[in-house]
Amino acid sequence: MNAEDVAHYLRTHPDFLNEHHELFAELTVPHPRHGGQAISLAERQLHALRDKIRLLELKLAELIRFGEENDDISGKVHRLSVTLLLAGSVASVRQAVISSLQDDFAVPHVGLELWAVVAQPEACGVSEAARRHIDSLRHPYCGAPESIEVASWFGEAAPHVRSLALMPLRSQGVCFGLLALGSAEPERFYPEMGTLYLNRIGELVAAALAARAA
């Protein structure tokens, strides 16, 4: 018999070791951490179970951490929502958005550009080509600034912005502006990051602006 035959036999006869339980104490295998030391099958199984428990504990700790982070972000989005509900004008919505993102979300640089619905196109500093690009986004863009114009949306802070998030602002399917978040940290906003909350923030801001302009 070769090793595969033995393994096959044990798989097809699960009661074998139960019927010959003395083998657990008689057979030995190398220690998983100390190669020169031999231990019984039962002890080896105990080590395997402990390793699995450690992995499960690490996974549970990670899930708890993610849950706490999501709760924290949800609380910040809720506070932003309440502030936007209390804002009585486009100007106050703008100020509420900038203050919330800078103070509560710790985003150092915030840009809000509007070119339709709540503003005249000629009053906007976004080119027609950039507007078409923003309109084509179906999800927030996260990553490095793609052009000098994009960086310019942060005013004097433009030279310091190394990563950003761009959120199209839409009302009834019409893109009328964008919300831009910028950071000097290259990895603050990166292409693979989740955009669930960015989407929600963009929708909240768009709805508040469109409602005040009506």
Rank of each mutant, 00 (worst) to 15 (best):
V82I: 14
L85R: 06
I98R: 03
E69I: 03
D71M: 12
L56W: 13
R50L: 14
Q37H: 14
V77Y: 04
E57K: 08
L60W: 07
K52V: 10
R50N: 08
L58Y: 07
S40F: 07
L55Q: 11
A38S: 13
L84E: 00
L63N: 15
V82H: 07
D71G: 07
L63W: 06
D72F: 13
Q95F: 10
L46E: 13
A61T: 11
A61L: 15
L55P: 05
E69Q: 14
I98Y: 06
I64A: 12
L85K: 05
L55T: 10
V77N: 00
N70W: 15
A87W: 02
L41A: 08
L84R: 00
G88A: 03
R44V: 06
R44D: 04
I53P: 02
V93E: 02
L101Y: 00
E57F: 04
A96G: 03
Q45P: 12
V90Y: 00
S89W: 02
A42C: 08
A96K: 06
F66G: 13
E62F: 10
S89T: 11
A87F: 01
I53S: 05
V77G: 01
V93N: 01
I39L: 03
L101D: 02
Q37E: 10
L80R: 02
R65C: 05
G67Y: 05
R50C: 10
V82G: 00
L63E: 09
L46D: 12
D51F: 05
E43M: 13
E68S: 12
A48T: 13
A87G: 01
E43R: 12
L46A: 11
L85M: 12
I39S: 09
L41M: 09
V90F: 00
